[in-house]
Amino acid sequence: MGQQPAEKRRRATYADLEAVPPTKVAELIGGELYVFPRPAPRHANASSVLGIEIGGPFQRGRGGPGGWWILDEPELHFPDPASPGDDDIVVPDLAGWRRERMPELPDTSYFPLAPDWGCEVLSPLTEEHDRTVKIPVYGREGVRHVWLVDPIKRTLEVYALSRRACVPVGTHRETARVRIEPFEAIELDLSALWAQ
Rank of each mutant, 00 (worst) to 15 (best):
residue 81 P to K: 09
residue 103 P to W: 08
residue 89 I to V: 14
residue 90 V to H: 00
residue 92 P to H: 14
residue 107 D to A: 15
residue 99 R to H: 03
residue 83 S to M: 06
residue 88 D to I: 03
residue 95 A to E: 02
residue 91 V to Q: 12
residue 109 S to M: 11
residue 81 P to G: 09
residue 110 Y to W: 12
residue 111 F to W: 14
residue 110 Y to G: 02
residue 105 L to P: 00
residue 109 S to I: 10
residue 93 D to N: 10
residue 92 P to C: 13
residue 109 S to A: 12
residue 97 W to D: 04
residue 108 T to E: 15
residue 94 L to W: 05
residue 82 A to V: 04
residue 82 A to E: 15
residue 96 G to V: 14
residue 103 P to D: 02
residue 86 D to E: 08
residue 110 Y to I: 02
residue 84 P to Y: 05
residue 97 W to P: 00
residue 107 D to R: 15
residue 102 M to L: 14
residue 108 T to R: 15
residue 99 R to D: 04
residue 94 L to H: 03
residue 111 F to V: 10
residue 80 D to E: 10
residue 101 R to D: 05
residue 108 T to A: 14
residue 95 A to F: 00
residue 111 F to S: 10
residue 81 P to C: 12
residue 89 I to M: 04
residue 98 R to Q: 15
residue 103 P to A: 11
residue 84 P to Q: 10
residue 102 M to W: 01
residue 92 P to M: 14
residue 93 D to P: 05
residue 106 P to T: 11
residue 81 P to S: 11
residue 100 E to D: 12
residue 88 D to P: 01
residue 92 P to W: 13
residue 98 R to N: 05
residue 105 L to G: 06
residue 83 S to Q: 12
residue 102 M to P: 05
residue 88 D to Q: 06
residue 80 D to M: 08
residue 101 R to L: 05
residue 82 A to F: 10
residue 88 D to W: 07
residue 108 T to L: 14
residue 89 I to W: 04
residue 99 R to A: 06
residue 103 P to Q: 13
residue 80 D to A: 10
residue 103 P to M: 12
residue 85 G to V: 06
residue 88 D to C: 03
residue 92 P to D: 13
residue 98 R to F: 01
residue 99 R to L: 06
residue 88 D to L: 00
residue 84 P to D: 07
residue 86 D to K: 01
residue 84 P to E: 07
residue 108 T to W: 02
residue 91 V to P: 04
residue 109 S to W: 09
residue 90 V to W: 04
residue 107 D to S: 15
residue 87 D to E: 07
residue 111 F to C: 04
residue 106 P to F: 06
residue 108 T to D: 12
residue 106 P to A: 13
residue 90 V to C: 06
residue 88 D to K: 02
residue 80 D to I: 06
residue 95 A to G: 10
residue 101 R to Y: 00
residue 90 V to F: 00
residue 80 D to G: 09
residue 103 P to V: 13
residue 84 P to V: 07
residue 100 E to M: 02
residue 81 P to E: 12
residue 93 D to K: 02
residue 100 E to L: 02
residue 88 D to M: 02
residue 101 R to M: 06
residue 104 E to A: 13
residue 97 W to E: 02
residue 83 S to K: 06
residue 110 Y to K: 10
residue 82 A to G: 13
residue 100 E to Y: 01
residue 83 S to V: 08
residue 83 S to C: 10
residue 85 G to A: 03
residue 85 G to N: 07
residue 101 R to I: 03
residue 107 D to P: 05
residue 83 S to P: 07
residue 99 R to N: 05
residue 107 D to T: 13
residue 90 V to A: 12
residue 89 I to H: 01
residue 91 V to G: 00
residue 82 A to D: 15
residue 80 D to K: 12
residue 97 W to C: 04
